[in-house]
Amino acid sequence: METDRDDGRSPSQLRPLSCARNVLCRAHGSASWSQGDTKVLAAVYGPKAGTKKNENPEKACIEVIWKPKTGQIGKLEKEFEMILKRTLQSICILTLNPNTTTSIIVQVVNDDGALLVCAVNAACAALVDAGIPMKHLAVAICCCLAEDGYVILDPTKLEEQKMRGFACLVFPNSVASVLPEGSSHVEGEPMEHGIITSVTHGVMSVEEYLKCLERGRAASAKLSDFLRRSLQSQLPSDSSKAA
């Protein structure tokens, strides 16, 4: 029988999503994203003049600053900063504004599981709000692996701790614009099935990881639709109803 979850969700049911854009007036772009009780606020400043040290002056530089809910940043936050930075670097068009820095500040409002994926989604919405040129959007999803091999999606903090392992996956969203024939498929797989970022915890078999991938891809299509819909509502008054 299917695994019962504490909050009565089915294994592949996500928590209620909400996304609000333009929530901060001083930032060039901002967004808040919440999945159930996990909520993250992201602000984008830039492109600002000058790159950081040791960066390529021919490309735009991306800087991520992670602010935890309480306390100092530790190794975990440093790791999140690095993952987020590399993920965003791969979706932004860096050659358009060379020798500039774009700062993304991520503030955790509340952590109830799937924090990293929430931050990726929030940062992505904030980048759109700031008008930073991007190749495509990214959608992130967290898959948990239960003891009996079932995959559950979008876990709460409690579920994350109970489970054998989990995988945070980031996929590109499906491109709606017209593309040349064949370019949206690579080796027989649509582009949105390619992994941008994958971070896993806990031991699993390779088959179980592939199962997580499959379930994550299916859910990322739904998330991608939600992201697109909430970004299309242009006016702040429209998007504020989601919050």
Partner: peptide, 25 residues
């Protein structure tokens, strides 16, 4: 991977090339 071929971590932090199932395998 551990000695009994189970996956301990699959870590891909961003990057411009997407990893498809065949690449993973």
């Amino acid at each position: 991977l551990d000695s009994s071929a189970r996956l301990v971590s699959f870590y891909k932090p961003g990057g411009s090339v997407l990893a498809y199932t065949s690449t993973v395998q």
